[in-house]
Simulated assay, not measured.
Amino acid sequence: MVFNFIGKKVRLSRILRSGRAVVFAFDHGVEHGPKDFPSEHIDPKVILRKVVDAGVDAVMLLPGMAYLTHDVWANKTALIVKVTSKTNLRPEDQRMLQSVFGYVEDAIALGADAVAATVYWGSQYEDTMLSMWFSVREAAERYGLPCLQLAYPRGPAIKNMYDVEVVKYGVRAAIESGADLIKTYYTGSRETFAEVVRVAAGVPVLMSGGPAREKPMDFLVDVKNVVEAGASGVVVGRNVFQHKNPSGMIKAIMAIVHDNKEPEDVIKYVE
């Protein structure tokens, strides 16, 4: 019997509760440093408690942060453990390389529902990250854990990483490398992102939230566009934890993703 197939199916259903998901990404402390967080959110439990209590579908944490905050998220939301990362303290020419930040066994020990790893498609270190990805995927497959690939086309040869053809290329590479879920860049319109979703061939696509928008309505419109394009939701960080009302932002995003609400109807949650 192939038990791992069932395990993966069950765990995916915990994340994609309605076939869609809003995932709170919280790996920025390593990728960008503490400067990313407003002073009231330097304590990670403060912001995590707000988004978990607001009903977010899943949180994506590095292993150490998952350990430190288990009393906040455990039995309240799904957990995705990201096992690769990198700092911006390293030399600039090496910032296109993700490093090992944990193992699939760490994710299992923490009670995770999925694991995540980044591949910078087009980077000069693409081959190294692919080796890490396949090691993660092989171990996760053995234990029935879904694998989220952060499929980011990024590197010196890529002039515009948001270009629809570039994003589609990264998504195609993600499905061909065995991703169960894909997080990728928003291409700027519903029509172009629909092309990205089509390339994914049924593998759920989640929009990367990106930098915080000056006007929350602009981000909510993006969320609406990607959902209407056929995406399975969003992975959002800075547009929530850098906002003055993180709980309201989560509630607004959830209403669009799960209930097909219009941005105009949910902006009241954040104003």
Rank of each mutant, 00 (worst) to 15 (best):
E191F: 03
S177D: 05
I253R: 03
G188W: 02
Y169W: 08
V23T: 15
L148P: 08
Y125Q: 01
P246G: 04
A229R: 11
L220I: 12
A229M: 03
S39N: 11
K9W: 09
L181M: 04
R90N: 02
I267P: 12
S208L: 08
P38N: 08
L220C: 12
L16Y: 12
K86G: 11
D163V: 06
R142L: 05
V119E: 09
F241C: 00
V197C: 15
D218P: 02
K215T: 06
F101P: 01
E40I: 15
V171E: 00
E40N: 15
V205F: 15
Y169G: 07
A107T: 01
G237N: 00
P263D: 03
K244C: 02
F134N: 14
D127Y: 13
P216C: 01
V227Y: 00
R142N: 04
M129G: 04
L68R: 13
H243L: 09
E176V: 12
E165G: 13
L12K: 13
K82M: 06
A200T: 10
W133T: 05
F26N: 02
T77K: 05
A21F: 10
S39R: 13
K9C: 14
K9P: 15
S189Q: 01
T128N: 07
N88Y: 13
N88V: 04
V119Q: 00
A151Q: 03
G7C: 00
K215I: 04
W121N: 10
I250H: 05
V227A: 06
A194G: 04
N239I: 12
P216M: 04
V203I: 08
E40R: 14
V223H: 01
P263T: 03
V221E: 09
P146M: 09
T192Y: 10
D259P: 06
K268R: 11
A112N: 05
K8W: 08
K261V: 15
V83N: 15
A109D: 12
H243P: 07
A252Y: 02
A255C: 08
N239T: 02
F37G: 01
M60G: 03
V136P: 13
F24Y: 03
L206Q: 10
K9L: 12
Q149L: 14
A109M: 15
A174E: 13
G102A: 11
F241T: 05
V226K: 12
